[in-house]
Simulated assay, not measured.
Amino acid sequence: MGYINIDFTAGCTNNKWENLLHTHSIIQLVNTPTRITSTSSTIIDHVYTNHPENIVETVVPKIAFSDRYAKCITRKINQKDMPCLCHKQIRYRCFKNFDENNFLGDLNKTSFTQIEQIIDVQSATAMWYQLFLSVINNHAPIKMKRIKHVRQPDWLTDEVKEAQKKEKCLPKQRELE
């Protein structure tokens, strides 16, 4: 948008300016006068875009505090580009009541020896994971929390997120075996 002072009224031309716009695929959207005096009516205030499909309408309301009218546009906004204003829920391990000594004690009481009889490495890993999860879930349970803004801690890297995705797949693999 701008105060360009080049008249775009029909019949008025500025070839250099119009060639520049055409070269860069830019379109001037205002087509009604933006400055009206007792002797003239001109389109000298402009709105430019190179994506006219994103503009729903261009309006020049006939209200002004000077001899120039305002220019108003309505821009189309894609929902996917809008930040979600809704609350999100996250899953996390709650360590509020975590006692390391009790956790280690329960871990020592867990019989991991049964894994030694399993020949398949994936099945053995899944069994170890299941035994470990049963202990950790008692001491640091997974909880859900409603949050306004998702801001993850620095340690939550892409590598950790990938490991979390794999964690979700392990129970499904066990069902298939």
Results as ranks from 00 to 15, higher is better:
20 L>F: 14
9 T>W: 11
143 K>H: 03
21 L>F: 06
144 M>E: 09
162 E>A: 12
25 S>G: 04
150 V>D: 05
6 I>H: 04
74 T>Y: 01
22 H>V: 05
51 H>A: 13
70 A>R: 01
22 H>C: 10
9 T>D: 06
79 Q>Y: 10
17 W>N: 00
52 P>H: 12
7 D>C: 11
167 E>N: 14
41 S>M: 15
162 E>D: 07
134 S>Q: 12
155 W>E: 07
16 K>V: 02
171 P>T: 10
105 G>S: 07
67 D>E: 13
148 K>E: 05
114 Q>N: 09
150 V>I: 15
20 L>R: 08
132 F>A: 07
98 F>R: 00
158 D>K: 10
81 D>F: 11
92 Y>E: 04
107 L>M: 13
123 S>C: 04
44 I>W: 01
4 I>W: 02
167 E>L: 15
27 I>D: 09
171 P>Y: 10
47 V>A: 07
125 T>E: 02
63 I>Y: 07
105 G>V: 02
113 T>E: 06
110 T>Y: 09
49 T>K: 04
119 I>Y: 06
33 P>L: 10
99 D>I: 14
64 A>Q: 10
11 G>E: 01
120 D>L: 10
52 P>E: 11
84 C>S: 13
25 S>C: 05
5 N>D: 06
82 M>P: 05
80 K>L: 10
67 D>S: 13
101 N>A: 13
78 N>K: 10
171 P>E: 12
44 I>F: 01
74 T>E: 01
157 T>A: 00
79 Q>T: 12
67 D>G: 06
38 S>T: 13
12 C>D: 00
27 I>R: 11
70 A>K: 03
135 V>K: 00
101 N>H: 10
144 M>P: 00
77 I>D: 01
151 R>C: 14
128 W>K: 11
68 R>C: 07
115 I>G: 00
175 E>C: 13
35 R>H: 10
99 D>H: 14
169 C>G: 01
102 N>G: 05
59 V>S: 09
28 Q>T: 07
55 I>V: 05
43 I>Y: 01
